[in-house]
Simulated assay, not measured.
Amino acid sequence: MMDTTTPKNTPRPKRELTYIQKVWHTVGIVALLVIVVLIARVAFNVLLMILAATLISTYFHGLGNIIQRKTKWGRKPAMILSVGGSFAILAVLLWFMGTKIQQQVAQLSHTLPNTINAARTKLAETPVGQQVLGYLDDNSGKIFITAQHFFSTSFGVLGNIYIIMFLGIFFTVSPSVYKDGFMIIIPPDKKELWLCIMNRINVSLKGWLKGMLLSVVLIFIMLTIGLTIMGIPAVLVLALIAAMLKIIPNFGSLVAMIPGVLLALTVSTNTAVIVTLIYIVSQTVVSNIVTPIIQNKIINLPPALTIISQVIMGTLSGALGIILAVPLLAIIVILADELYVKKINEDNPKLQIDAKHVPLAD
């Protein structure tokens, strides 16, 4: 009698998926990819907030180092003076300038519609101006949507500021906790390398902060003096806007000129030309003379690479991405240099020798 039972090791035939099952599998995969992309985008914004908080902590510790060197105090009193003194100076400035700025903001809000109408009238007098007005009218919806996306953030502007400030204070109070916690996950043979990377990043971020802070102060002072001489209204507000937008390289300077030039057009065309020159000269002096001297320790980033990083970061994360594009790019360049470029040069020393003998193009 023959055994008709199926052996245990015999593979079972694969069950074919129906068309509907294949469709649902595809929909599930696409939905999973969309969820992963959305989570990655939110996580990227969170990483940017961590970077912003790190910059705040770097500022407090850098100022604490200066106080410690000048006064010979201990670390704790120097840091208390660094944090407390910074908030005290900010409070005093707001106390003395807050009322004046509030009045000028109200004045600017009241005169801005008339200023825009006057600028449109001036532009309509020339063929080029008519083309510009036509383009703005045709694309006003797109411009509004772009601006709305630019200022959009994961948790809202106030929420992001709240999170960044508290993270910055936590990083300032106990930086060793987070640094040591990060170093725990690093393999023992790589700890020295990552300590070198962290030190380079620290020096680079300090250089960027020094240049930005000095640029903000100088732009505010120079524009306040120049616009006051020209008799432009709302001088403090215009200078403050330009100083804050100085944090955004390349694009910030152009955007800051718009309200000042529009107000100058209400006076006369010659005044608008002079005000434009004041903006250009002040931005040029600060960007090409003062900032490079202060930021001599930061990586020399190519201008084209900086603009590309700003466009990409602005598309991904709006205003916060554009503000942090330069320090983030500096960190990426340092990581690439330490983890990839130097390793290649060590493994292939002939590349360094050959690179020195490459003839320059005529």
Score class of each variant (00 low, 15 high):
245 L>W: 11
254 L>Y: 11
261 V>E: 07
246 K>F: 11
249 P>N: 13
240 L>T: 14
248 I>S: 13
237 V>C: 03
246 K>Q: 15
234 A>N: 07
255 V>I: 15
232 I>T: 00
234 A>S: 09
235 V>H: 07
256 A>T: 09
237 V>M: 09
259 P>F: 02
245 L>E: 11
249 P>C: 08
236 L>R: 12
252 G>L: 12
245 L>R: 11
239 A>W: 09
261 V>A: 09
250 N>Q: 15
262 L>I: 08
234 A>Y: 01
260 G>I: 06
242 A>V: 03
259 P>N: 06
235 V>E: 04
235 V>N: 01
250 N>D: 14
232 I>Y: 00
234 A>I: 00
233 P>H: 00
236 L>D: 11
241 I>R: 04
233 P>S: 01
239 A>V: 08
248 I>D: 13
236 L>S: 10
252 G>R: 04
244 M>E: 11
241 I>S: 07
238 L>M: 03
258 I>Q: 04
238 L>C: 00
241 I>M: 12
254 L>C: 06
234 A>H: 03
260 G>M: 02
238 L>A: 00
262 L>N: 10
262 L>K: 08
243 A>S: 15
244 M>N: 14
252 G>P: 14
251 F>G: 01
253 S>A: 15
258 I>V: 12
247 I>E: 10
246 K>N: 13
255 V>L: 14
251 F>A: 11
257 M>W: 09
259 P>R: 03
258 I>G: 03
243 A>N: 03
248 I>K: 12
233 P>E: 02
255 V>W: 01
255 V>T: 10
250 N>Y: 15
245 L>T: 10
251 F>P: 02
240 L>S: 14
242 A>R: 08
245 L>S: 05
255 V>K: 09
255 V>E: 04
236 L>Q: 14
236 L>W: 10
243 A>C: 06
259 P>Y: 04
262 L>W: 05
257 M>R: 13
259 P>A: 02
252 G>W: 09
